[in-house]
Structures are given as structure tokens and as C-alpha cells.
Write a protein that binds this DNA or RNA. Structure first.
Lengths: 198, 198
DNA sequence: GAATAGAAATGACGATCGTCATACTTGTTT
DNA sequence: AAACAAGTATGACGATCGTCATTTCTATTC
């Protein structure tokens, strides 16, 4: 059943999108090719016409997830041309909605641990995308390039850690306390540095 | 081949210890019962004499890992009765050695994402242990109980996030930069609050 | 309209997954 | 010495894992 190039590309993309979602939700080892292909409305046998191996898909899907995820596009309701400020980002990042929707959320929080168990090539690829995300955040922070970059690392680490901890603690009081406390601290800190700069 | 109670308990413990290590290294879905039992010098069939299911082992092993891991006992070379100060903890937590040895390291950084994919009961158990770890860290921080607790959350989140990111970025420059930058910031911050209190 | 090429569907492979019933072996008790 | 009890080893189960070779169907090309 021959398809047009466009259809083939669309299928390829759909597999990647579905995988990016399922990997984030269930983990790289928690989903099989079969489940991904079913969700993509294809049979599992067709998989190897698109990818040489599951590992290859992990690479594509995690790169896609990094681009698709969290931060800038948690919800895509900002007018084009405008940028979310950091406090706005923190507010969304550390929300209960983000905690409960890993499949559409930040790829770092959802996949970094899994990627940490992959081989060097995969980690190098992930590091590249990580660099891009750090750059994006740094652009929204005050100070010279180095200071902003370092600040981005610290703030990203804090947000990722808080989200990961909140997700592990279920939906109890502790989970939301972590989210709230860290969000407030980040907001307060930001307000302080802004008034200092001004 | 009947064993004494002590031997049985020892076998049980060994399974838990081995699992706590392997789960942290390879993830909960990355290790099978068979591998765990072989590493514990038993056959996989004997497993179900000790645990009703793999899930039960995940619960015991993650609790054990929380107690065994990171922070207070990354290396057990402190004299009894003394406590590591927070900067010392941060230094060890954000070291290359800790990054490269998840099997003996912090259970939160290694397992929190996996636990976030388990059921509510497992997450509630994990939250209890998380609370204990937060309390331990809060004891080493200045301020009243609430402030210290909140500070512990922030600092833990930052360290966990930094470690997770560093592990995902392989062994390249970015990985160590994250570790270094976050460690320096935490140390500097601590020095500032201490001098403010004094 | 016929031949060809390209992509998905089918179905199977060996390996491993979690689980368990059974057999065996050996301390403990009588 | 014999009977019992208790924990491990054996071996198998159905399901699912990742991976392919083969078949089938349909766009495209002639």
C-alpha cells in the first residue's frame, strides 16, 4: 500500500509525536514499540520502515520533546512576538497542571533520568538540546551573558528538581507544598534582582 | 533446603540491597527479577518466597535506598556524633563521583521520576521518606523550623535537579559546568545567610 | 492499462518479562 | 533415627519485548 511522500512523512512525524508523549509519561523502558505504533494507528511491523531501532526513536523523540515541551509552550496562548517573563514561566512550570501532565510537559524533568541511563551518543544529543533550552531561559534573565547563563542553570535545576520531587510525592500535601514554596522563592528572588538592577 | 531465620532474613536483606542499587542504576523498568536474584546469588524462583510481587520489592528497595543514599552517607567517613555541614553536603552531592555512581547515590535523584510513574500507595510511601530527608536537611539550616523546612525544599530541589541534568548531559563540559555552577551558588548563598545571621 | 516501486500489514523469531506450582533439600523437633 | 517444616531450586506458563523477512496493496511511471 504505497503512500505519497507527504503521507509517509506524516506517519513518521506522528510516531515521533506519540513517542515523545508516551516516553515522558511512562518512561523509555515503560513503553514498547507496539503501544507506540497502535497509538499512531499503525502496526508495529511498520516501525522498522521508519527507524532502525527503538534507540533511534528515543533520540528523535527526546529531541522533539525538548522542543515541544514545557517552558515556552506549556500552553501556546501567548501572542506571537511576545515572550513569557521568567516569573510567568516559573508559575506555569511549578503548577499542579504541569505536574499532572508529564506527557505534554518539560522533557528535562520527564526524560533526563532516562537519558542518563542511555549511551554516550544519546547523552551528547540531549546535551545539545539542553544547551538550547538554557540559552532560551538565559535570554529572559538579567545580567551579562555569563551571569545569565549561570543563573539559567541554577533556576532550571531548581525547577526540574522541584517538579520531579512533586511528582514522586503523589498528590498529597507535600507535593503541592514543594511546588508552592519553590515557586514563591523563585518569584521573590527575581523581584529582588530586578529591583537591584533598576 | 531449609535455612535458619537469620539466613532467611539475610537473603531478604541482600535482595533489597541489590535491588536498591540496580533500580537506581538502571531504573525500575530496566531491571528484571532474574537479574536481581542472580546478583543476590539466588534463583529467580526464590523471589516469590520473599515478596508477593515486583511492586512490593520496589517499595522496600526505594525506602531502603532513601535511607542508604546520598547526603548523610555518600561516604561514611564522618566520625559518629558529628554532622556534615550543608556546604559539605552540597560539595559531595554535586560531585562527579556522585554523578557517576547513581547505584550508591541519592535515591531521590535516581528514583523520583520512576516513583512518579507508580501508583498512589507507592508515592505516599515515597513521600514519607522524602519528608524524613527534608527534615534531616532542615536541621542543618539556620532559621526557625518553617524557614528551615522551606529552605531545605529549595536546596534539595536545586541539588536534585542539577544532578539529574548533569547525568543526562553525559560526561561533557556542560555536565560539569552545571555541577560546578550550582555548587558554587549554593555555597555562596549559604555563606551570605550565615554572615547575616551572625 | 500494465509494470514497477515503495510503504504498511502480517506473522513469526528468540529472548525476557513477571508469576507460580511443584520438587527438593536440609534444619529442627520429637 | 524418624517425621516434620520451611525455604530454595527447578522448570514452566502466557505475555510482551525488539527485530525482521515476507506478503500485500496502492501510487506512480511507462
Amino acid at each position: 500500500m504505497r503512500l505519497t511522500k507527504a503521507q509517509r512523512a506524516e506517519n513518521h512525524d506522528r510516531i515521533v509525536r506519540v513517542a515523545a508523549k508516551l516516553f515522558r509519561e511512562k518512561g523509555v523502558d515503560g513503553v514498547g514499540i507496539d503501544e507506540i505504533m497502535v497509538e499512531a494507528s499503525l502496526t508495529h511491523g511498520a516501525f522498522y520502515g521508519h527507524f532502525p531501532s527503538k534507540t533511534a526513536l528515543i533520540g528523535e523523540a527526546s529531541a522533539y520533546a525538548m522542543d515541544d515541551s514545557g517552558l515556552t509552550r506549556l500552553e501556546d496562548d501567548t501572542p506571537p512576538g511576545t515572550r513569557k517573563s521568567f516569573p510567568e514561566l516559573a508559575r506555569r512550570y511549578l503548577s499542579v497542571e504541569h505536574r499532572d501532565d508529564p506527557g505534554r510537559g518539560c522533557a528535562i524533568a520527564a526524560l533526563a533520568v532516562d537519558i542518563g541511563r542511555q549511551d554516550d551518543a544519546m547523552q551528547a544529543l540531549f546535551a545539545q538540546n539542553l544547551e538550547v533550552r538554557l540559552g532560551e531561559l538565559a535570554e529572559r534573565l538579567p545580567g551579562d551573558r555569563d551571569a545569565a547563563r549561570h543563573d539559567a542553570m541554577l533556576k532550571y535545576a531548581t525547577m526540574v528538581g522541584a517538579l520531579v520531587m512533586a511528582r514522586s510525592a503523589g498528590k498529597g500535601a507535600l507535593s503541592e507544598e514543594v511546588l508552592d514554596v519553590v515557586r514563591e522563592r523563585l518569584e521573590a528572588e527575581q523581584a529582588a534582582t530586578e529591583s537591584a538592577v533598576a
